[in-house]
């Protein structure tokens, strides 16, 4: 297995709704690391306008309120990111008009109001593997939000990016 293939993943279930009131449905994937033997859960929440949010956490932290912020210290982020990337491609295969966004959760080393460490790594990885052919890239540094808008299906990518930013801000404030 090459690192760029990622780990094999399984679509566990499709839930109606999600953690946020605007969520339409949620795809729950899981994969197991053959190196650290940790199982990871990936939740892809679908919002109106074919917007998808990718979230992932270690299964061992599933009952924690800070499950998205906890560090696993398994030293294999690249393979995990590649797995997430392939999950994103799987979602794109199911819904070709999909646009994506993700937020880099803060950990104990981050300062409030600044781009988080996770966000900086995700942004670097995304800009390395996702080109400009299909997606338009947007970044929001103060909320550590990165948006990939599907060019071929969205007429006004800037407007959609602004809408997503606004909704994320509302969700953060509430």
């Amino acid at each position: 297995m090459r690192m760029s293939d990622g780990y094999p993943f399984v679509l566990g279930m499709v839930e109606q709704g999600g953690s946020y009131h605007l969520s339409v449905q949620t795809y729950q994937y899981r994969f197991k690391s053959t190196r650290s033997h940790h199982t990871y859960i990936v939740r892809v929440e679908c919002f109106p306008e074919h917007v998808y949010c990718l979230k992932f956490f270690d299964k061992a932290h599933r009952h924690s309120d800070n499950k998205f912020s906890l560090l696993t210290n398994t030293f294999e982020p690249r393979t995990i990111f590649y797995t997430l990337y392939h999950i994103m491609l799987d979602v794109l295969q199911r819904d070709p008009s999909a646009s994506f966004f993700f937020i880099g959760a803060a950990d104990e080393h981050d300062e409030i109001g600044l781009a988080t460490r996770r966000y900086r790594i995700y942004r670097r990885f995304t800009s390395s593997v996702v080109g400009e052919k299909l997606f338009e890239h947007f970044r929001v540094n103060d909320t550590s939000l990165y948006i990939l808008v599907n060019k071929s299906f969205v007429k006004d990518p800037e407007f959609l990016a602004k809408q997503i930013t606004q909704e994320v801000r509302v969700a953060f404030d509430s």
């Binding site: 781009a115 800009s127 338009e136 890239h137 947007f138 970044r139 929001v140 540094n141 990016a161 930013t165």
Partner: peptide, 10 residues
């Protein structure tokens, strides 16, 4: 650091 408010096109 960059403190541009709102969504910025990359």
């Amino acid at each position: 650091y960059d403190a541009t408010p709102g969504a910025v096109h990359v």
